[in-house]
Design a protein around this nucleic acid. Structure first.
Lengths: 341, 341
DNA sequence: CCCTAAATTGGGAACATTCCCAATTCATAA
DNA sequence: TTATGAATTGGGAATGTTCCCAATTTAGGG
C-alpha cells in the first residue's frame, strides 16, 4: 500500500494560503507574488512534493502521454525507432507508453484498448503483418485522438505517415546485384498487405526490367515473415533447375536466416549465391559474410513520427493534416554481395 | 484537441439511473439487478464507452501501472527481459511504462521523476553503470512505492532482487575453457560498482584456483562497458610477451567485439585464442565462430521480478519482504571455444 | 488621507469515478 | 393486509488539481 502523498493542500495549509495560490506558484503562473512563489517552491522541495498527473490530466483533459504500438521490441528495428520516439517525446514534455502486438491481430486490438483506457493524447502505430481490418485503429480517429503510422502504414486511413522510399531502396539494391554480374535474382517478398513489401517488390522488378533481365515469377516467393518458412523457400530455390545467383530478402532477419541455410549447404556467398537484406539491423555487419542491406534512418523515423503526432495533437480535429513523409534510404554494400579482400 | 469522451454520467442520463448504478454494472459489483446490468453494458458498448483510468486511479489511489527503468532497449538482454515483464504485468492487470537511462546517471534521476509523477504502483530497476549514489532510488521507498532490482542490483537497499548465479556461470565457463586446454585465460571485467561484474570475476578466479592455474592480474582488465576501450585492451593482451590463449568477456557485446578484433588480426579462434561471453545475446549463435556464452533465463527474470513486485504492491509497507531470487544459468558451448566439425 | 488601478489571493466548480450509507422497492410469510 | 428482510438503487463525499471570477491587499497619485 502506498503512503498518502504530499498534495498542494498540505502545502497550502502549512503556509496558510489557498490551494489556488500554491497551484499558481507551481505552474509558473504570472499572477503571483515572487516571495510567495519562492516559499511554496522551497516547501514543495522540502516535502518532496510530486505533482499528481492524474488529477491534472483529469482537469485539463490531457495526459501528455503518447502511445506506441509496435509488432515487437526484440526486433532491433523497432527498438531503435523507439529511441527516436522517446527522445522527441521527452524533449516536448510527453511520456511514452509502449505496447507490443507480437504480430498478433487480437493483441493489437487489446493494445488499442489499453491506449484508450490510458487516455493517451495520440498514438504511433506500426501494424502487425496480420492486420487487414482497421476498425480498431479507426476508433482513435472517432474519438479525436490523432494517429500517425510509421513503417507499416495503413493506406485506407487518411492520416500522417512516415516511411522510407522502399521502392528506391530496393531498386538500388537490385541494381547493385545486377552490376556485380548477377542475372537470376530471387526475391523473398513480405506479406502483401504491408505496403512496404509491395514497394520493395516493385523496386526489385523495376530494376530487373531496366536492365533487360527476365522477371521470373518462380523467383518471387511470398514470404510471410515467419522464419520457419524461409528454409522451405530457400531449399526450393536452390533445387530449381536454373538456380538463382542472388537472393534479396525483404528484411535483414530473413536474409540472416538465408545466409545460415546457404552456409550449412556449403554454398559460397556471394560467388555462387549473393544475399541481401533490408533495414541494416544492428548485427548485419558482424555476420560472416557481412550482410549487404539498405539502411533506414531509424531514429529519424521515430523523431519525425513523433513530431508529426505532436503537431496533430496541438491542432483542432478539423485541422488535421495527413502528410506522408518519405525518408531516404542508403545502400550498404558488404561482403554478402561483393567480397572484398 | 480531443473530443469529449463518453462518461458514466452520459450512460446514467440515457438510462435514467444513477451513476452509482452504472458504476456497479461496469465493475462486476454483486449488488445489481441483472437486467439493469445488461442494459448498461449494452449501451456502454454501443456508445464506445471507455473507462477513464485517470479518475479511477485518483479515487482508488492506484494506477495499476508498473514502471521499468533500464539502461537501454537496444541491448537485446533488456528487451527480452521486458517481454517477460509485460507478459506477467498484463496478465495481472497492470500496464507497464518503460524508461531508458541510456547508462546515464542524470537521466536515471529524471526517469525516477517521471515514474513518481505518473504515480506508478511499483518500479523495476536495473541501474546504469554510473550509479554509485542511490538517493534518487530511495525516494521510492520513502513514498511507499515498492522497488525490485533485477540484473544490476543495489546492495545498499534492502529490497527484493532478481539475479542469476553470476559466480557459478562464470565458474563453469572458465572451467570449460580450462578443460579445453587453455592455461592463460584473460578476463575483460565489468565496472566494479556492478555486483554482477564482481561475481563473474570471482567465479573466474575461483575456477583458476581450483585448477591450480596462476591468477595473473595482468590478464584481468577493468572493462567499463564502453566498446571503444575493448580494442585497446585486446591489443594490449595480444602484445603481451606471454599472450593469453583465451579471453572471457563480461558480456556478449564485448565478446563479439573481441572476436571482430581478433579476426581482423587473423588470429585463429579458438585455436590461438578462445573467446567467451555472458548472457547469450540473440545473435551470438549467428557469429562466425559462434559464441560460447552463459545463457540467462531472460524472460523468467522479467516474470519473476514482476511477480515479486506485484506481491510487494499488495503488501503493507511494514510487511515488505526483501527476497533475493537467484536463477540458474546455463553454459552454452559453441565454436568460439570448441570448434566442431 | 483617500481613491483607483494593479497586483495578489481566495472560493468553489469542474473533471470521472468509487464507495459508503441511506432510501426505496420487492417478494414472502404471518 | 402488513411486517420483515433482502435486493436494488440513489445521494453525495472524496480523490488532487486547474481555472474562472470575485475579493482583498497594495502602491502610488492627487
Amino acid at each position: 500500500m502506498k503512503n498518502r502523498q504530499v498534495t498542494i493542500i498540505d502545502i497550502a495549509k502549512a503556509l496558510n494560503i489557498s490551494t489556488s495560490t500554491v497551484s499558481r506558484a507551481l505552474t509558473n503562473h504570472p499572477n503571483i507574488n515572487l516571495t510567495t512563489k519562492k516559499a511554496v517552491l522551497e516547501l514543495a522541495e522540502k516535502m518532496d512534493y510530486q505533482r499528481n498527473m492524474l488529477s491534472i490530466s483529469l482537469v485539463t483533459n490531457k495526459t501528455n502521454t503518447i502511445g506506441v504500438i509496435v509488432p515487437e521490441l526484440i526486433n532491433s528495428y523497432f527498438s531503435r525507432v523507439i529511441i527516436g520516439i522517446q527522445k522527441a517525446a521527452y524533449s516536448a514534455g510527453y511520456n511514452v507508453i509502449i505496447c507490443q502486438s507480437n504480430e498478433n491481430y487480437d493483441q493489437e486490438i487489446s493494445n488499442v484498448n489499453i491506449m484508450l483506457n490510458s487516455r493517451v493524447d495520440g498514438v504511433l502505430v506500426s501494424m502487425t503483418k496480420e492486420t487487414r481490418n482497421f476498425d480498431h485503429l479507426k476508433r482513435f480517429e472517432k474519438k479525436g485522438i490523432p494517429i500517425v503510422f510509421f513503417n507499416r502504414i495503413c493506406e485506407e486511413m487518411i492520416v500522417p505517415r512516415v516511411i522510407v522510399d522502399d521502392y528506391e531502396g530496393a531498386f538500388q539494391l537490385t541494381e547493385h546485384l545486377i552490376e556485380t554480374g548477377k542475372k537470376r535474382i530471387a526475391h523473398l517478398a513480405g506479406p502483401d498487405n504491408l505496403i512496404l513489401s509491395m514497394r520493395r517488390k516493385e523496386g526489385y522488378i523495376a530494376a530487373l526490367i531496366k536492365h533487360n533481365l527476365e522477371v521470373d515469377n518462380d523467383l518471387i516467393l511470398p514470404y510471410d515473415l515467419n522464419l520457419e518458412k524461409v528454409k522451405i523457400y530457400v531449399n526450393h530455390l536452390i533445387n530449381l533447375p536454373n538456380r538463382p545467383d542472388a537472393i534479396f530478402a525483404v528484411n535483414d532477419p530473413t536474409a540472416i536466416e538465408v545466409i545460415q541455410i546457404l552456409k550449412s549447404k556449403n554454398i559460397k556467398i556471394p560467388s555462387e549465391i549473393a544475399v541481401a537484406g533490408f533495414s541494416n539491423d544492428n548485427f548485419s555487419s558482424y555476420l560472416e559474410p557481412s550482410l549487404t542491406t539498405v539502411s533506414q534512418p531509424v531514429e529519424e523515423i521515430g523523431r519525425v513520427s513523433t513530431e508529426l503526432l505532436i503537431d496533430q495533437i496541438n491542432r483542432d480535429v478539423n485541422d488535421w493534416k495527413a502528410i506522408t513523409k518519405v525518408l531516404k534510404t542508403e545502400l550498404i554494400i558488404r561482403n554478402s554481395t561483393l567480397m572484398r579482400k
